[in-house]
Protein backbone atom coordinates (compact mmCIF):
# COMPACT_ATOMS: atom_id res chain seq x y z
CA UNK A 1 0.00 0.00 0.00
CA UNK A 2 1.21 3.50 -0.79
CA UNK A 3 2.09 5.61 2.22
CA UNK A 4 -0.38 8.32 1.19
CA UNK A 5 -3.24 5.82 0.88
CA UNK A 6 -2.91 4.91 4.52
CA UNK A 7 -1.73 8.26 5.84
CA UNK A 8 -4.51 10.33 4.29
CA UNK A 9 -4.74 14.04 4.99
CA UNK A 10 -7.64 13.50 7.41
CA UNK A 11 -5.50 11.06 9.42
CA UNK A 12 -2.60 13.47 9.59
CA UNK A 13 -4.98 16.22 10.65
CA UNK A 14 -6.37 14.21 13.57
CA UNK A 15 -2.80 13.29 14.57
CA UNK A 16 -1.59 16.89 14.52
CA UNK A 17 -4.78 18.38 15.96
CA UNK A 18 -6.29 15.73 18.19
CA UNK A 19 -9.90 16.31 19.25
CA UNK A 20 -11.01 15.80 22.85
CA UNK A 21 -7.51 15.08 24.11
CA UNK A 22 -6.74 15.99 27.70
CA UNK A 23 -4.57 14.75 30.50
CA UNK A 24 -6.14 11.78 32.25
CA UNK A 25 -3.26 10.87 34.54
CA UNK A 26 -5.55 9.21 37.08
CA UNK A 27 -6.75 6.54 34.63
CA UNK A 28 -5.15 3.21 33.75
CA UNK A 29 -4.03 2.98 30.13
CA UNK A 30 -4.77 0.28 27.59
CA UNK A 31 -1.46 -0.57 25.94
CA UNK A 32 -0.19 -2.24 22.81
CA UNK A 33 2.71 -4.32 24.13
CA UNK A 34 4.29 -4.69 20.70
CA UNK A 35 5.04 -0.98 20.32
CA UNK A 36 4.29 0.67 23.67
CA UNK A 37 1.43 2.81 22.38
CA UNK A 38 -1.07 3.62 25.10
CA UNK A 39 -4.55 5.14 25.26
CA UNK A 40 -6.82 6.18 28.14
CA UNK A 41 -10.49 6.97 27.61
CA UNK A 42 -12.86 8.87 29.89
CA UNK A 43 -16.61 8.81 29.25
CA UNK A 44 -18.52 11.73 30.70
CA UNK A 45 -22.27 11.17 31.07
CA UNK A 46 -24.66 8.80 32.79
CA UNK A 47 -25.43 5.11 32.39
CA UNK A 48 -27.57 5.78 29.34
CA UNK A 49 -26.02 8.71 27.56
CA UNK A 50 -22.49 9.84 26.67
CA UNK A 51 -22.10 13.60 26.79
CA UNK A 52 -18.37 13.81 26.18
CA UNK A 53 -15.54 11.44 25.31
CA UNK A 54 -11.99 12.36 26.29
CA UNK A 55 -8.79 10.53 25.55
CA UNK A 56 -5.15 10.70 26.52
CA UNK A 57 -2.22 8.73 25.23
CA UNK A 58 0.84 8.45 23.08
CA UNK A 59 1.55 6.54 19.93
CA UNK A 60 1.77 6.50 16.16
CA UNK A 61 -0.48 8.49 13.81
CA UNK A 62 -2.78 5.55 13.31
CA UNK A 63 -3.42 4.86 16.99
CA UNK A 64 -3.72 8.55 17.93
CA UNK A 65 -5.96 9.58 15.02
CA UNK A 66 -8.15 6.56 15.66
CA UNK A 67 -8.58 7.72 19.27
CA UNK A 68 -9.36 11.27 18.16
CA UNK A 69 -11.89 10.10 15.57
CA UNK A 70 -13.49 7.71 18.04
CA UNK A 71 -13.93 10.51 20.56
CA UNK A 72 -15.71 12.69 18.00
CA UNK A 73 -17.89 9.88 16.76
CA UNK A 74 -19.15 8.71 20.15
CA UNK A 75 -19.80 12.16 21.62
CA UNK A 76 -23.54 12.64 22.20
CA UNK A 77 -24.44 9.02 21.54
CA UNK A 78 -26.58 6.82 23.77
CA UNK A 79 -24.72 3.92 25.40
CA UNK A 80 -26.39 1.27 23.18
CA UNK A 81 -25.55 3.35 20.07
CA UNK A 82 -21.95 3.68 21.19
CA UNK A 83 -21.64 -0.04 21.85
CA UNK A 84 -23.06 -0.76 18.43
CA UNK A 85 -20.55 1.58 16.73
CA UNK A 86 -17.63 0.08 18.67
CA UNK A 87 -18.55 -3.45 17.67
CA UNK A 88 -19.14 -2.33 14.07
CA UNK A 89 -15.71 -0.67 13.86
CA UNK A 90 -13.87 -3.60 15.46
CA UNK A 91 -15.79 -6.02 13.22
CA UNK A 92 -14.77 -4.14 10.08
CA UNK A 93 -11.12 -3.78 11.07
CA UNK A 94 -10.94 -7.50 11.92
CA UNK A 95 -12.38 -8.21 8.47
CA UNK A 96 -15.58 -9.73 9.85
CA UNK A 97 -17.87 -7.06 8.38
CA UNK A 98 -17.82 -5.27 5.02
CA UNK A 99 -15.46 -2.26 5.00
CA UNK A 100 -18.09 -0.10 3.27
CA UNK A 101 -20.22 -0.16 6.39
CA UNK A 102 -17.83 2.46 7.85
CA UNK A 103 -18.71 4.96 5.10
CA UNK A 104 -21.67 6.38 7.06
CA UNK A 105 -19.52 7.01 10.15
CA UNK A 106 -17.57 10.05 8.91
CA UNK A 107 -13.80 10.50 9.30
CA UNK A 108 -13.24 7.05 10.72
CA UNK A 109 -13.84 5.55 7.27
CA UNK A 110 -10.34 6.80 6.43
CA UNK A 111 -8.96 3.94 8.54
CA UNK A 112 -10.31 1.27 6.20
CA UNK A 113 -6.86 0.89 4.65
CA UNK A 114 -5.63 -0.70 7.88
CA UNK A 115 -7.65 -3.86 7.16
CA UNK A 116 -4.98 -4.93 4.68
CA UNK A 117 -2.19 -4.38 7.21
CA UNK A 118 -2.46 -6.99 9.97
CA UNK A 119 0.39 -5.47 11.98
CA UNK A 120 -1.30 -2.04 12.07
CA UNK A 121 -4.71 -3.40 13.10
CA UNK A 122 -3.51 -3.26 16.71
CA UNK A 123 -2.74 0.46 16.31
CA UNK A 124 -6.16 1.26 14.86
CA UNK A 125 -8.12 -0.71 17.46
CA UNK A 126 -6.24 0.37 20.61
CA UNK A 127 -8.54 3.29 21.48
CA UNK A 128 -11.58 1.20 20.65
CA UNK A 129 -10.57 -1.48 23.11
CA UNK A 130 -10.09 1.28 25.68
CA UNK A 131 -13.59 2.69 25.07
CA UNK A 132 -15.04 -0.83 25.03
CA UNK A 133 -13.67 -1.25 28.57
CA UNK A 134 -14.94 2.16 29.62
CA UNK A 135 -18.43 1.34 28.28
CA UNK A 136 -18.36 -1.95 30.17
CA UNK A 137 -17.50 -0.12 33.39
CA UNK A 138 -20.50 2.24 33.14
Amino acid sequence: MAFDELYQEIIRDHYKNPRNKRELSHLKAVENPSCGDSVKVLLDGDSQHIENVYFDGSGCSISMCSASMMSELLTGKTVPEAKQIVSQFLGVIRGEQPADSLDDLGDIAALKGVIELPVRVKCATLAWHAVEQALGDL
Binding site: A2, F3, C35, G36, C60, S61
Partner: peptide, 21 residues
Protein backbone atom coordinates in the same frame (compact mmCIF):
# COMPACT_ATOMS: atom_id res chain seq x y z
CA UNK B 1 7.91 11.14 14.46
CA UNK B 2 6.68 7.88 15.92
CA UNK B 3 8.83 4.89 14.92
CA UNK B 4 5.79 3.15 13.39
CA UNK B 5 5.05 6.11 11.15
CA UNK B 6 8.70 6.38 10.15
CA UNK B 7 8.85 2.68 9.38
CA UNK B 8 5.62 2.85 7.33
CA UNK B 9 7.08 5.75 5.36
CA UNK B 10 10.33 3.86 4.69
CA UNK B 11 8.31 0.79 3.69
CA UNK B 12 6.48 2.85 1.08
CA UNK B 13 9.95 3.37 -0.46
CA UNK B 14 10.65 -0.35 -0.35
CA UNK B 15 12.91 -0.11 2.72
CA UNK B 16 12.16 -2.71 5.41
CA UNK B 17 13.31 -1.70 8.90
CA UNK B 18 12.00 -2.79 12.27
CA UNK B 19 10.02 -0.41 14.48
CA UNK B 20 9.24 -1.02 18.11
CA UNK B 21 11.00 -1.94 21.33
Amino acid sequence: IHAHDLSAFLDSRGVAVRAGH
